[in-house]
């Protein structure tokens, strides 16, 4: 088999370019830095800020079902639309958004392979600054599907029992505790290191030089053969704040087709602040 387990989940920039006028295909750019969207976006796309629009602004949590319904309604998205997520930083935040779309039961949401950088570097692709005109909808989301999400108790239990694969997708220096966070970011954990029993497979190992995902053979070799992320048991992926692990969650679940993969979005900024929690370096 040389095809992704769910090939429909990943679309190419050309695929998107051919459907810019399709009213049932909705493009959503999800960035950490929305300056990029404002400077130029794919015609017809709406822009989400992952921090202010996809997360609860009071409690540390993902956006509520009601707020998700309002956001999608205001963005002109209907329940039966094909949503294409793309964004900066190699689609980390787009993958995080896709994860939330899936949690709230949006059936057809896909990722544009290579993100906004690939689109930017292709001469035949257009970017515009004109605001996208939206016809608001009434969007009804499903109740949150918690099977896609791991919480602290799950991570701790798995660390203890070894009953699931635990994948830390941060850089090796974060994994070993040499640094608390990537350079330049505020350090938001008290201790460096990783959850005992976790395997370190940095997110970047899943992508080629141009930011697109590697082939299924390469992914299988990296995750299953070399790193022992075995398909016979469930998997939890984590990072620092849950966005890089969304990227790996996507690769494991939809490209490799592992059955039960959860994203632990609390990640190291939760675990690394706990009093008395076991830490490996």
């Amino acid at each position: 088999m040389n095809q992704y387990a769910h090939p429909e989940m990943l679309v190419t920039t050309d695929w998107v370019n051919e459907r810019l006028n399709d009213p049932k295909v909705k493009l959503v750019e999800i960035d950490v830095d929305t300056q990029a969207y404002e400077a130029g976006h794919i015609p017809g796309s709406v822009g989400f800020n992952w921090q202010t629009q996809l997360q609860d602004q009071v409690v540390r949590d993902i956006i509520s079902k009601e707020d998700f319904e309002q956001l999608l309604g205001e963005s002109g998205i209907e329940k039966d639309d094909t949503v294409i997520a793309y964004g900066d930083n190699n689609n980390w935040f787009a993958a995080y958004g896709l994860w939330i779309f899936k949690i709230y039961g949006h059936a057809d949401v896909r990722l544009m392979d290579g993100g906004r950088l690939k689109w930017l570097n292709e001469d035949d692709k257009e970017l515009v600054t004109t605001p996208t005109e939206v016809t608001p909808t009434t969007y009804r989301a499903s109740d949150a599907d918690e099977s896609l999400r791991a919480f602290l108790v799950d991570a701790m239990e798995v660390s203890k029992s070894g009953s699931e694969n635990l994948v830390d997708v941060r850089s090796p220096d974060e994994f070993t505790g040499k640094i608390l966070a990537p350079p330049g970011l505020p350090e938001t954990c008290q201790r460096g290191g990783h959850i005992p029993g976790a395997k370190n497979v940095p997110w970047v190992t899943a992508v080629a030089e141009d930011g697109t995902f590697k082939s299924v053979e390469e992914l299988r070799k990296i995750y299953i053969e070399d790193q022992g992320v075995t398909p016979d048991k469930p998997t939890i992926a984590y990072c620092r704040i849950g966005e890089r692990s969304s990227h790996t969650w996507f690769a494991l679940k939809y490209l490799l087709g592992l059955e039960n993969v959860r994203n632990y979005d609390g990640s190291w900024t939760e675990y690394g602040n706990l009093v008395n929690a076991p830490v490996e370096k």
């Binding site: 830095d33 400077a39 190699n90 950088l117 930017l120 850089s171 990537p182």
Partner: peptide, 18 residues
Amino acid sequence: LCPAPGLGDGSINLAKTH
């Protein structure tokens, strides 16, 4: 945030976007 070879950096990509 966590740069990868070949993916460029934020300032270059934003300038290219403009």
